[in-house]
């Protein structure tokens, strides 16, 4: 079995020039925690997730782990201020550029190993020009396996 056999091809994406104030309501509406970011040619440029947005709302000395515990600090409303500041920020400033991508003819085990070692639950399936073909999640792989074993 290959990645293309189990991947989802109907993918909601974010545009590269979208500001946060447009993207966030959209993400909430479709109940997705993670969207691939594509440019005008459909080439994958990054991933935007609720997690990566959250990371940008915390001070750098917290996200870097130098002061990972703030239990001694009162509510100094840092995040609200940062949230307001970031509203007009472009997605490119907030997204993760390290991509979890796999070619569509990759064996299922290759895709599974990739997802297992990555931070997100899914990987993006791309063609040779890095254009987005679909996404593949841990659930998709399990569904594909169940189907193949006749357990569906």
């Amino acid at each position: 079995m290959r990645a293309k056999d189990v991947m989802k091809t109907e993918v909601i994406t974010a545009r590269i020039d979208e500001p946060l104030c447009q993207l966030l309501p959209h993400m909430r509406k479709v109940h997705l925690r993670m969207l691939p970011v594509v440019d005008h040619d459909g080439v994958v440029r990054g991933v935007i997730s609720t997690f990566s947005i959250l990371e940008h709302l915390l001070p750098s000395y917290v996200t870097s782990g130098d002061l990972s515990d703030l239990s001694f600090a009162p509510d100094i409303d840092l995040m609200r201020a940062h949230f307001a500041d970031q509203q007009q920020s472009n997605i490119t400033e907030l997204m993760e550029e390290a991509l979890l991508v796999t070619p569509d003819d990759a064996a299922l085990a290759v895709a599974a190993a990739l997802i297992r070692h990555g931070k997100h639950e899914c990987a993006m399936v791309v063609d040779e020009q890095q254009r987005l073909l679909g996404v593949i999640s841990a659930g998709d792989i399990l569904n594909g396996l169940a189907k193949a074993c006749g357990n569906d």
Binding site: P59, Y61, D66, A73, I76
Partner: peptide
């Protein structure tokens, strides 16, 4: 400085 600088940044933020 690795220990004090992050607390300093938090304090100046506050």
């Amino acid at each position: 400085v690795l220990l004090i600088a992050p607390v300093t940044l938090l304090i100046t933020d506050a």
